[in-house]
């Protein structure tokens, strides 16, 4: 292979990595937010992404809505499910240890996934049939969908940034993440802030799920399969750190795709795992630093 071809292929793989990284980031943001405030690893987060993707399917196929309308709808619906999950399950376990919360989130993951299977069936589904021609720049191919994923993620991250820094509730979320006890002493209604945290985390997850569905296909296990890279991204970025989660997502996405140039693509998830373990062993606070 000559050098020109290699560089083109390399850049092409990077593009795929960025697309995958965007999807992972949207999941990792939620995992990071929830960990920052409630101090437990939320194992049902991948399945929340699946749920968002399937709510998107309802919008696209059943309601025949355009994509830009599908997003707020699916994100809102997923947020409501997350809020309901918190009210019905997690809230009752708040005073127990993070480990018990973690196990209960594994149970919640099972429930979400099987509910998806009951409602939509176990088969693969797609939003739209047909192949869209990619744009080609200097030999690099990029599909319109992929551009939308990158652009859409950027918009959502900017919106989230504004929410966290410009609104009262957003600032309170950061305050809780810093110090829950102090927030309580200050008189902040922590339960309400936690409620909002779930809604935001789930909405981000839903968007990530729809993007994942656009990029690949929908099936009930899609979210569980991406959970490992999502956790890896949140850890790599420094758990509790929003921008770290985005960077971590991009890192995991790009390295996963690059690894396919060297090893069998079947082992992509192993790469996420390897990065995660390396980070945990050598730099547990993540790239940008996070919480213990």
């Amino acid at each position: 292979m000559d050098w020109g071809c290699f560089v083109i292929e390399f850049l092409q793989v990077i593009i795929y990595g960025i697309v995958l990284g965007c999807i992972i980031s949207l999941g990792a943001i939620g995992v990071s937010l929830i960990f920052g405030i409630l101090r437990f690893a939320h194992f049902a987060h991948g399945d929340m992404m699946s749920l968002g993707a399937y709510f998107g399917l309802v919008g696209v196929v059943s309601l025949q809505l355009p994509m830009y309308a599908v997003f707020p709808l699916a994100m809102g619906a997923t947020a409501l499910v997350a809020a309901a999950l918190d009210r019905s399950i997690y809230r009752w376990l708040r005073s127990s240890t993070p480990i018990i919360m973690l196990i209960s989130s594994v149970g919640a993951a099972l429930m979400l996934r099987s509910a998806i299977q009951v409602v939509w069936g176990p088969d693969n589904k797609i939003y739209e049939a047909g192949i869209k021609l990619p744009y080609i720049f200097y030999g690099l191919r990029i599909k319109p969908d992929q551009l939308n994923i990158i652009f859409g993620t950027a918009v959502l991250v900017v919106l989230l940034h504004l929410f966290l820094h410009k609104t009262r509730m957003g600032k309170a979320m950061r305050a809780l993440s810093d110090n829950m006890d102090l927030a309580q002493v200050t008189g902040i209604n922590t339960e309400r802030v936690i409620f909002w945290t779930w809604m935001i985390a789930a909405a981000m997850a839903a968007a990530g799920g729809i993007f994942l569905g656009i990029d690949t296909r929908l099936n009930p296990i899609m979210g569980w399969r991406i959970l490992l890279p999502v956790f890896a991204a949140a850890i790599a970025g420094g758990i509790g750190n929003l921008y770290g989660a985005v960077l971590g997502g991009l890192l995991i996405g790009i390295v996963q795709e690059l690894s396919t140039m060297v090893i069998s693509p079947a082992y992509k998830p192993a790469v996420a795992f390897a990065i995660m373990v390396l980070m945990l062993v050598f730099r547990p606070t993540g790239i940008l630093g996070g919480k213990e």
Partner: peptide, 23 residues
């Protein structure tokens, strides 16, 4: 055809029930 999913759902619900009421 969706029976096994329903069963899994019930197992998940059972786990939550135990964790909340008899950990």
């Amino acid at each position: 055809t969706r029976a096994s999913a329903i069963r899994i759902f019930l197992v998940g619900a059972l786990l939550e029930f135990i964790l909340i009421f008899r950990p």
